[in-house]
Every structure is written in C-alpha cells, then in structure tokens.
Design a binder for these strands. Structure first.
Lengths: 164, 164
DNA sequence: TATTGTTATACTCTATAACTATA
DNA sequence: TATAGTTATAGAGTATAACAATA
C-alpha cells in the first residue's frame, strides 16, 4: 500500500481540492484567507495612495496623536527600524508631522495633519466597506466570532511566547 | 474639536490598546493573528527542516503524487516562477523527485520519496499539535466556525475577483 | 500559437546588528 | 549605561515579463 517511491502518473483529483489535506489546519486557512484579503484591501486603498500597512500606521497616529515612533512600533507589532521608511512616507505625503518631543530630544512625537486626518477617515470607510463585503456571507454573530477567535489565537500564542 | 494640526503631546492611552481603532476590522485581526501563527508554526517546523510553505508544498505532493508544478502552483495559489526554487529545495532534500511526464515532455511529475512521506507525516502531526494548542481557548464549534468563516471570506473575494 | 518550466528582476514586509544622539 | 531613532543589510514571500523547449 505504501510504495509511492516510484514515479506515479496519478489520476489528478479536482485541482480545486488538491490542498484538501491542508484545509484541516486553521493556520493554512488563515494564510489563504489573509493573502486574498491583503491583496484586495491593498487594491481598495491604492486610489488613496495607501497600503494596508501605511493605513494602519496612519490610523494609529490619528487615534493617538503625539505618540512616539517606538510606541507606534509596539502598537503595530513591528520592529522600530521598519518604521523609519514608513513614517518617512507618511511625512512626505503630508499626512503626518514628525515633531521633536519637548521632554526628550531623542524622541519624535507623531501627529496627523488635517490632510492626514481627512484621508484616514476616507480610508477607514473604504476598509470598512471592504470588510463588510468580504464578510457578507457571515451572520453578525459569525463575524464577531471570527474576530474574537482570531484575537484568542493571537493572545494564546503571545502568552506562550512570553512564558518561554 | 478638530484642531490636531498642531503638535500634541497627548496623554498616551494604554499602549496595548493604541491599535483599538483597527481592531474593528476583520482584516487587521487576520493580519495580526496570521503573523503570530506563521512565526510560531515556522519555529515548530524548523527542527524538521521545513517552513510553512515547504510543508504545504510537500503535503500537497504527498496527497497528489504525480501532479505537475503548474497544478501545485494552482493548489497553493502562488505563481509558477515562485515554485521553482521551492521544488528545488524539496528535491535537494530528497523529499520529492521531479520526473519528466511521459505524455508531455515539457512537464514534470512531482512525486514524494519514502523519506518525504515519512517527514510529511511527522510535520502534519507537528502542525496539528500546534493548531490544537493555539485554538485551546476555543470550543470545537468556535474552531470549526473560524475555519468556515475564513473559507467564506476567501470564497467571496475570489468570486468577486473572477467576476471583474 | 499556446503551454511548461525557467530566468531575471523587483517589491513588500519583516528581522537583526550596530551606529548616533541624547538621556 | 540605557533608550530613541537610524542605517545597513538580509531573508522570506510574492509578482510580472520574457525566454527555451515542447505541444
């Protein structure tokens, strides 16, 4: 029964189901769904000159005016060096300003411009619309269950990592 | 009320909640959860010499012996060029063989070796264990609800993209 | 002409190490 | 010494365009 060491020219199962064995894993389904979502959200945001990551950064700055780059990095769970070009990009687009913190001349205080706030509102609407479309086959309960399940997984793994 | 154009040295909200505005979006929660999961699964697979992507490819080949590279690309939803080095890697590790298809000398038939099959079984167990751990705060119903919600989103977006 | 696999190339996101200027 | 931001660099994962061999 177990002799597939030799080349086989097997009957191809339906190509749409060739990954059936992987579909039992939550992680694989997350990867597939996220990949699709990211591409789609990025396409929605392109007309606004944003990507998923720049939108996220802008949104956090708008909601937390005055925060420092290192705080932004913590909020987005990315490393500080990766923020430099990202913040440069937002600054160059006049969406935020980088102001020296009064109490600590090493640090920057990140603040949205009027233009940044306006664009953020539009982008939030765009992403919200997209979110609604992509979850349109889900009931409200299923949608909120999805969010809390994702957060549960994130929390369980972060707790595990911290306890190492 | 809307005058945050000037630098603010705002009171920092709890840093853990600085992304609260983004948490309402399914896509953002997917991104955060997936990023954590991918890092964690990769760490689990490293002792076996695999990553999430190489595991996925190996698993599809084991479950569909004889399939072609282009079919593998379709199954994993990645572009053909990106498979070349991936398949090279699996071949070099003696996990699969690349055999010329008898009926089409342009194509390769991908087949797992005994070693590849054995490693795949071990890796599947590893990923399954990881999946169970990370969903341990979910009920079975919540876990299967999560999987079907992710698939629903993937399907909705793919349907939309096809109808463009 | 169309398709299979390939090469070359590039872009996005992420990570680590080491530097600078402050503290 | 330690911290904030930076530079340099590297490694995954993905994408497109163009090519050779074959259909």
């Amino acid at each position: 029964m177990t002799k597939p060491t030799e080349p086989a020219n097997a009957i191809q199962p339906s190509l749409e189901e060739a990954d059936a064995a992987l579909r039992v894993f939550v992680g694989y389904n997350m990867k597939r769904a996220f990949h699709t979502v990211q591409g789609d959200v990025t396409a929605s945001l392109t007309p606004l000159g944003l990507r998923m990551l720049t939108f996220s950064a802008l949104s956090v700055i708008v909601s937390n005016a005055g925060l420092r780059q290192s705080h932004l990095a913590d909020a987005l769970a990315i490393e500080r060096p990766n923020l430099v070009l990202l913040v440069d990009e937002l600054e160059r687009a006049d969406l935020i300003t980088r102001d020296r913190a009064k109490d600590d001349r090493r640090a920057y205080s990140l603040n949205p411009t009027e233009k940044g706030i306006a664009l953020c509102r539009r982008a939030e609407q765009t992403v919200l619309d997209h979110d609604r479309r992509m979850t349109r086959d889900l009931t409200p309960a299923e949608r909120s269950g999805l969010i809390s399940a994702l957060q549960s997984i994130e929390n369980v793994l972060n707790r595990e990592d911290r306890d190492d």
